[in-house]
Deep mutational scan, measured.
Amino acid sequence: ERVRARYDYEAQNEDELSFKKGDIITVLEKDDGWWKGRNGKEGLFPSNYVEELE
């Protein structure tokens, strides 16, 4: 599954994923509120910062 970033997100910890608004992220795992994904790097990000691609 792929999602698009709705906002910029700056990683707060080294296991998190940074991205810019409009970036496409491949979702690897979904957990409550935090998803694991890849966009060149791999890490956790808040699920409310992304939207599913149509």
Rank of each mutant, 00 (worst) to 15 (best):
W34L: 06
K30S: 05
L44H: 11
K41M: 10
G37I: 00
R4S: 05
I24H: 05
D15Q: 12
I24N: 03
L53H: 07
E51T: 07
Y7V: 11
L28H: 04
D23R: 00
D32K: 11
P46G: 04
D23A: 07
D32A: 07
E14C: 09
T26M: 11
G40H: 12
A11P: 07
V50M: 06
L28Y: 06
G33Q: 12
E42C: 08
A11I: 02
D15G: 14
G33T: 11
A11T: 04
Y7P: 05
R4Q: 08
E52K: 12
Q12K: 14
F19I: 06
Y9D: 04
D8F: 00
E1G: 13
E14T: 10
E42L: 11
E10Y: 13
G22F: 01
E10W: 09
Y49E: 01
V27P: 01
L44P: 01
G40F: 09
K41T: 12
R38N: 13
E51Q: 07
V27Q: 01
G40P: 04
S18R: 02
E51M: 06
D15T: 12
W34T: 03
N48P: 06
K30E: 04
E51L: 01
I25R: 01
Q12F: 07
L53W: 11
R4K: 11
K20D: 05
F45D: 02
P46E: 04
D23H: 04
N48D: 14
G33F: 15
L53M: 13
R2Q: 14
N39S: 12
G43F: 00
F19M: 08
N39C: 13
W34N: 05
V50F: 04
E42Q: 09
L44Y: 15
I24L: 10
S18W: 01
F19R: 00
V3D: 03
Q12R: 13
E29Y: 09
N39Y: 13
D8S: 07
Q12W: 05
Y49C: 13
S47L: 07
R6H: 06
E52V: 13
E51K: 01
G33V: 13
E42N: 06
S47G: 09
S47K: 11
E42Y: 05
F19Q: 03
G22Q: 03
N48E: 14
N13V: 06
S47T: 07
E42M: 11
K20S: 10
N13T: 11
K41G: 11
L53T: 08
E52N: 13
D32H: 08
E52A: 15
L17M: 09
E51I: 05
N39K: 11
V50R: 00
L44C: 11
K41H: 11
R38F: 15
F19A: 00
L44T: 11
G37Y: 00
R2N: 10
Y49N: 06
I24P: 00
Y9W: 07
G40V: 13
V3E: 01
V3W: 10
G40K: 09
W34R: 08
L53Y: 14
E54Q: 14
L17N: 02
N39A: 14
G33H: 15
T26L: 13
E14W: 08
A5D: 04
R6I: 15
E1C: 13
P46W: 05
K30R: 11
G43T: 02
W35Q: 05
L53Q: 07
E16W: 00
D15I: 09
D32P: 07
L28W: 03
A5Y: 00
A5L: 01
A11M: 05
I25E: 03
E52S: 15
K21L: 07
D31C: 15
Y9N: 05
A11Y: 01
R38V: 11
P46C: 07
E29K: 09
G33E: 14
V50C: 05
V50G: 03
K20T: 08
N39R: 10
T26K: 07
E16H: 08
E29G: 12
V27I: 12
D8P: 08
D32Y: 06
T26P: 04
K41E: 10
G40Q: 10
Q12P: 04
N39F: 15
K30I: 06
Y49A: 13
D23S: 07
R2M: 13
I24C: 09
D31G: 15
K20A: 10
R38I: 13
G33R: 11
Y9T: 05
E10L: 10
R4E: 06
I24W: 10
L53R: 03
E10T: 12
V50H: 03
R38K: 13
L53N: 06
W34G: 05
A11H: 01
A5M: 03
D15H: 14
K36Y: 13
V27G: 02
E14P: 15
V3K: 05
Y49Q: 07
V3N: 04
E54W: 11
R4V: 13
Y7G: 08
P46L: 09
E54H: 14
E52M: 13
Y7D: 10
L17Y: 00
G33M: 13
L17S: 01
D31T: 15
R6P: 04
L28D: 05
E16S: 01
D8V: 00
K36W: 11
V27L: 09
E10V: 13
Y49R: 08
S18I: 01
T26V: 14
K41L: 10
N13M: 07
D23E: 10
G40W: 12
W35L: 08
V50S: 03
I24Q: 04
G33S: 10
F19G: 01
A11E: 05
E54N: 13
I24M: 09
R38P: 04
V50P: 02
D23C: 06
I24E: 06
K36I: 11
K21N: 05
E51G: 05
K20C: 10
W35I: 09
E51F: 02
N13D: 09
L28K: 04
R6G: 06
W34H: 07
F19C: 04
V50K: 00
E42T: 15
Y7T: 10
G43R: 01
Y9E: 03
T26Q: 12
S18Y: 01
W35P: 05
S18M: 03
E16R: 00
Y7R: 14
A11F: 03
L44G: 07
R4P: 01
L17T: 02
E52P: 15
A5E: 05
G40Y: 09
K36N: 06
N39D: 07
I24Y: 10
E42H: 06
L17R: 00
E14L: 09
L28S: 05
Y49P: 03
S18A: 05
L28R: 02
G40C: 10
G37T: 02
K21W: 05
A11S: 07
E10P: 03
E51N: 02
L28E: 04
E10D: 13
V3G: 04
N13R: 12
D32C: 10
E29L: 11
K30A: 06
E10I: 12
R4D: 04
L28C: 08
N48R: 12
N13Y: 08
L44N: 09
K20L: 10
R4W: 00
Q12G: 07
G43Q: 01
K21H: 07
T26A: 08
G22E: 03
S18V: 01
E52Q: 13
R4T: 08
E29T: 11
A11D: 02
E29C: 14
A11N: 02
R6Q: 09
A11K: 04
F45T: 04
W34Q: 07
L53V: 11
V27Y: 01
E42D: 10
G22N: 08
V3C: 10
E29I: 10
R4N: 05
I25G: 01
W34Y: 11
L53K: 04
P46M: 07
P46N: 09
Y7L: 14
D31F: 15
K21P: 03
I25V: 06
L44Q: 08
D32W: 03
E42S: 10
G22D: 08
G37M: 00
E29F: 12
Y7K: 12
E52H: 13
